[in-house]
Every structure is written in structure tokens, then in C-alpha cells.
Design a protein around this nucleic acid. Structure first.
Lengths: 337, 337
DNA sequence: CTGAAAGCGCTTACAG
DNA sequence: CTGAAAGCGCTTACAG
């Protein structure tokens, strides 16, 4: 129960306004009264009451635009749920959130959307696309002192922007460890990844390789294919892999294309272990049916929630800005659903 | 951006006080003005601003006592961290939290502490102990309309109380599934559990057995011992088990006594897999050294945080009271630390 | 049955 | 250099 500014004023024998000048380091106050006030504030551990503050600012909305390439991608359902939860929680603090969704990885599309929202928002949360035009646009917006937050994926060329999402390299290492544990350290492994244009997907493959090299000399990485998150492509790639390597007995799917891959695995018959990423309707069904043994989750709800909460923390709570919020990575099996 | 009570007053041509009477269903208002006001509130989707509300109530503290048998139990470090985080977040809403810690499972101790805090708190969060005296005391406090919240473990004999913690039976099932996956479906399994007086520990064993029965006919459960969360006991029990069953090749530790168990396993030599529960300093070290393959975590930070947040949600946000908040269960391997 | 006022802790624009 | 006042959205005690 810290002291209020009003009480400080009484103790110092001055008005509320003067106390405010001292605390905020505003001009128009003599050095001695300022010192007297700050000493009292210090002594009684004054911390401004955020509710009093929030009430004042509730008139001036904090405008936030969220741009996600989420259309057709079930991963983002929970991300959006987290955003909506935060929206409800912080509504009374003046948070005004607009959500824009698009499909795919077209950089022009994203740049266009950024242009559209720029004028009417001080905070822009987006799932960035790895493209120089996107990077340039983000840097331009930062110059206009827009607060940029990257959600669920990250551009390494951007500084002074918060990233909220998982540690992709680490998630790959975990995948490698699971592969080792479930296979008993001996397997012919095939990886179906999303796109090499998605930095995160590439890092996952890298992480798996790293662990294989370090710990599992008897696991042979037969090959890696890209599905571009498309089931048909995944199916054809996996079919092809089995044709050339009938001894594949472990498949890791690092991104989308799960159903296509599983179809090819089912047709192949034999005891083939499969692991995936994320907890979507598709992976849940596959876990329950036994087609998939384990999946690595990255807390999508929390990603959405914290992307908004970070704004609350810096603006309202005046906490220092972070540059990374890594959500937890955890392994789930069927019984955990 | 919902309408304010002030605007409703203006639209209805009445004073703020009258609007309040209508909204709160308080006496002293004619049916027709009431209806007129409620219609306007409805039309503009009026929702009271919690910040305005909170400021009024910040004078009347919400007193919360937290009683944990956490002394000497590192699991509770994160639980406490979650409580402290919530304390900071809700301080300005008038939340006054006092923490009381004790050691062990002595019911008298807990009853005594409950007596002590009862007069000075409307909300009591505790780690309950399975004992009729505790149950009676809790029921008596509920009769005095104290809000009781059970944290991290649960008494099934108590109703009208929120439980915040993991689903122990489910966590046991997950343990069973891990055992199956890592062993390749073939093992001689031994379980070191905490205490049969701890309902949760018993449920974990039950969950493991259930999965073995359903899915893994070739995993043989050699035996179960109780460590009472004590390393020395765990060591002796495990030694004894190896003496009688030298073929044990998988050990599941469902509670404490991890170091003692691991010591016996190390002395036994051979390729013995070990899995545990929770992410404490001890299990982390064991995961990193490779002595333990995987551990099941139950979000202790969130347990602490949500036990307080639930009070905020019902008192301030006026959300309906829940009776269970199950935190997520997830598997972690060394690379996830 | 209804209104006017004071107050929760803060900020800001204005007056002296 | 300092103070007094109005206002954010709400609640509550009091006056009519």
C-alpha cells in the first residue's frame, strides 16, 4: 500500500501540482522544494497508481493494428483468441484493436496493408514476411515512431522491435531429441518442412540436424522436402521419398502439409513414426488416431495475448521495453489433449 | 468503446444517480424511468468501466491470505513467483496479499494457520492437506462466507471452492504414454511415488497403470514404492527393488525423492530410462546430465498467478465463478530448458 | 422518486 | 515558482 501523491503534497506542505512537477521532472519548480518532495516520495516508496492514471488516459485511445497472414492457417486460431482476450482485458485502458487478415506470403500484400493502417495506429503488430520490401517498410514506419511488434515469426534485419513467438532453433532441437527418444536412437529419418523462405522452418530443420549430429550417430537423415504448407505437395514429396528410400521409418513434419504427409505414410504401411509441430485440429486428430506420436507446441494463445500485453506493460505500467518474448515450447502426446 | 453511465444519463434526461439505480436494480426509481434507462443501456451496449469502479474500491482493500506447505519444496518457487506477479499487477485494485508458509503435511498445523488468518481475510488460498479436520475447518470458513481456493492440490470433499492446479489423473496418463513411447512399448517398469496420502500422487500411479493396461501389454509394472518425497527413503526403496528385480529398465518418479532414486539407478548401472514430474533445479540438472529423459510439467507459475487472478475476475470483472482451473500439462526434454 | 455533490488517484490547462 | 480547478467513470451518502 504505497503512499498517494496527495499525501505527499500534505506532508510537504505544497499542492498536488507541485508534487507532480517534482515527480515528473517538469520545469517550474525550485530545486529545494523539488528535493524535499522527492525525498518524501522516496521515503514512503511512492509508486503512481495506474488506475488513477488509466482513467485520465481512457479518453485518448491507444490504437493498435494487428496484421496476420492467418487466413486458411488454423495455427492462428489460438493466436487470435489470445488477442481477443487481451482486447477485452485492456479495453477500459483505451486500447482500440483492429485486426486485418490475409492469406499467404505475398510481400506486396503485406506492405499494402501496412500502408493502410499506418495513419490510424501507433502500434502495429504483424506476422512479418521475409522480404526486403517488408523490411524497408517496417523501418520507414519505425522512423515515424510507430511501435512495431513481430508476432509468431521474426525478421532478423529489424531492430528496436519486439518479437513475440517461439525460439525456432530450440524447437528444432527439441524435435531432434524427441526423434532420438522415440526411435531409441536408431532410425531412417525424413523431414517434410514448410518453406525455406520461412526462416523459422529452416531453423527447425537446422536444430534437428544439430541434435542428430551431436547425440544420435545411428539416426540417418535420408532427406528433406518442402511442402510449402500444402497437402498435395507434401503427399507427392513423401510418396517420392518412400519410392527412393523404402526404409524410412521416422518422419518429422516441421510445418503444414500434415494431412498430405500422413496420407502417404498410411499408404506406405509398416511401422513408421511421425511427429509434428503445433496443436491444431489436424494434429489433434492424428495424435488421437495414433498416426502421430507427439507434437511440439509453442503457446499460440500466449503469443497473441502477450503481443498486446507488452503494449500495456510499456505504456501503462511503464516497464522497460523488451526485445524478445519467447513463449514456452512443450511436447504433447495424445493423452495431453 | 462502450457508452458511459454519464452519457446514458444525458440521453435519458436524468441524473447519474438515477441511472445507477436502474442499472443496479436498486430501489427508489419508477418503473418507467427504469425501463427507459435500461433500454438505452441495452441499445448502446453499456458495460461499466472497471477502472472507474476500481478507483472507488481502492479504498477498501481486498484481503487475501495464501497458506502453502512450501518450505523445503522447490516446486513452490514458481508458484510463489506467480503469486508475486499477480500481487504487483493487482496491487492498485486494493489487493492485499499475505503469504504464510509451513513445512510438511501436518493437518493440525494447517488448521491452526487457517484459524489465525480467518479474521483478517475474505479470501484464503491454500494447499489443502487430505484430512478430515482440514475439511471441517474449510467448511466452517465457507459458512462464514470466506472464499476458499485450493492451490496445486485438491480435496474432493469440498464443494463451492475453486481448484487451481493440474489434472493429476491426466498427468499420470501422459506419464504412461511417455513410458510407452520411450521404451518402444517393452519395459520392466518401476514407480517411485510420493505418498498414498497425497491424492494426486495416487492418481498419477493410477493413470500410468491405466495406459499400460490399455496400450502396452509388453510393459510389465514390476512394483511401486513410496518415498514420502524423501531422498534417503527413495534410495533405499529403489535399491531394494533392484535387488529383487535386476531386470528393471524403466523408472518413473511421480513426485519427490528424485536424487535418491537417481543415486540408486546410477549404482545399478545398465541402460535404465528415468522420467520425472516437474521442472525443478534437481530435474533440470538430471535432464542435462542425461540421467533423466523427460519430465512432465504443470505450469506452477500459472497456478500461483491464476489463484489470485481468479479473485480479480470474479470481484472486479464480475465474471462468473469457476470451480476448476486446470493448468496445462506438457512434456519437457533437456533441449527445452 | 430524483438530483447534486464529494471522492477514489491521477493529469492537464490555466491563473496568479 | 506555485496553487486551484476540472475532469476521467464510477459509487455512495445526503438533500429534497
Amino acid at each position: 500500500m504505497s503512499i498517494t501523491a496527495k499525501e505527499i503534497a500534505r506532508l510537504a506542505g505544497v499542492s498536488r501540482g507541485t508534487v507532480d512537477r517534482a515527480l515528473k521532472d517538469r520545469p517550474g519548480i525550485s530545486e529545494e522544494t523539488k528535493k524535499r518532495i522527492l525525498d518524501i516520495a522516496d521515503k514512503y516508496d511512492y509508486k503512481p497508481n495506474i488506475i488513477g492514471k488509466a482513467l485520465v488516459y481512457s479518453g485518448k485511445p491507444i490504437r493498435i493494428s494487428v496484421i496476420l497472414n492467418s487466413i486458411g492457417n488454423p495455427f492462428f486460431d489460438d493466436v487470435k483468441a489470445g488477442i481477443f482476450a487481451a482486447q477485452e482485458e485492456f479495453e477500459n485502458y483505451g486500447f482500440r484493436i483492429s485486426l486485418f487478415e490475409f492469406k499467404g506470403y505475398d510481400a506486396e500484400n503485406l506492405v499494402h496493408l501496412l500502408d493502410e493502417v499506418a495513419d490510424e495506429s501507433e502500434h502495429i503488430i504483424l506476422t512479418p514476411i521475409c522480404d526486403s520490401r517488408v523490411e524497408e517498410k517496417i523501418r520507414a514506419l519505425q522512423k515515424q515512431s510507430k511501435n512495431i511488434i513481430m508476432l509468431s515469426s521474426v525478421l532478423e534485419g529489424i531492430s528496436n522491435a519486439l518479437y513475440v513467438g517461439c525460439d525456432y532453433l530450440k524447437s528444432g532441437r527439441i524435435a531432434g531429441r524427441i526423434t532420438g527418444l522415440i526411435s531409441g536412437g536408431c532410425a531412417n529419418l525424413y523431414i517434410i518442412t514448410g518453406s525455406s523462405n520461412h526462416k523459422g522452418h529452416a531453423q527447425r530443420v537446422e536444430g534437428i540436424k544439430e541434435i542428430m549430429k551431436k547425440n544420435y550417430p545411428s539416426i540417418h537423415l535420408v532427406g528433406v522436402s518442402e511442402s510449402n504448407d500444402d497437402d498435395e505437395t507434401a503427399y507427392l514429396e513423401m510418396k517420392d521419398a518412400f519410392r527412393n528410400h523404402p526404409d524410412i521409418d521416422f518422419v518429422y513434419i516441421t510445418a503444414g502439409g500434415v494431412n498430405g504427409t500422413l496420407k502417404a505414410v498410411a499408404e506406405q504401411k509398416g511401422d513408421i513414426r511421425v511427429c509434428t509441430f503445433d496443436d491444431t485440429e489436424i494434429t489433434r486428430q492424428a495424435l488421437i488416431s495414433g498416426a502421430v506420436q507427439a507434437t511440439i507446441c509453442q503457446q499460440p494463445f500466449e503469443q497473441g495475448y502477450y503481443s498486446i500485453k507488452s503494449i500495456f506493460d510499456t505504456i501503462v505500467m511503464k516497464k522497460e521495453a523488451q526485445n524478445t518474448i519467447h513463449t514456452q515450447l512443450s511436447i504433447k502426446v495424445d493423452e495431453a489433449l
